[in-house]
């Protein structure tokens, strides 16, 4: 394969804990590593089993690589977290800066979202506040 299309930063270990989800997240992603990149949203699929964000990342030479990232919770779980944003908060064409755990498959462009910035605004992914049970 030719040029490295993106540059990313691999941080230190942030968590060795398994992430429980129904798709075996802890063995799908390198949860001890993160990468951060900026791109343009092509699709936000707020659907089951987990919401997915698809985006294009361009390097300095203009080469584009298509990426996808999943969010751990289900859509209704995310809504119930009272995160302050909705399924309409991310649209194609938006600029996304994402920090995520890379996939274990070498060369894969899928990752598990950890932090999300859309058009310069950070969108909480949950974590600071427990969900309010039963509300929608």
């Amino acid at each position: 394969m030719g040029k490295q299309l993106i540059s990313y930063v691999v941080f230190g270990i942030i968590s060795g804990a398994p992430i429980f989800a129904h798709h075996g997240t802890s063995v799908t992603y390198q949860t001890d590593k993160t990468l951060t990149m900026t791109g343009i949203v092509t699709e936000f699929s707020f659907s089951y089993p987990h919401p997915q964000l698809y985006f294009d990342v361009k390097d300095a030479d203009g080469n584009v690589q298509h990426w996808g990232s999943e969010f751990g919770p289900t859509p209704l779980m995310m809504k119930n977290m009272n995160l302050g944003w909705t399924r309409d908060s991310i649209k194609p064409g938006d600029t996304v800066t994402i920090t995520c755990n890379p996939h274990r498959v070498p060369g894969s462009t899928a990752c598990l979202a950890k932090e999300l910035i859309i058009n310069g605004k950070k969108l909480p992914m949950g974590g600071g506040r427990p969900p309010t049970q039963g509300k929608e």
Binding site: G126, P130, Q133
Partner: peptide, 18 residues
């Protein structure tokens, strides 16, 4: 048991507000 990283867990919702 390690607490870090659980915030994406569906099981977090078992935290019984009731």
């Amino acid at each position: 048991v390690i607490s870090a990283g659980v915030f994406f867990s569906p099981l977090l919702f078992a935290q019984t507000a009731s």
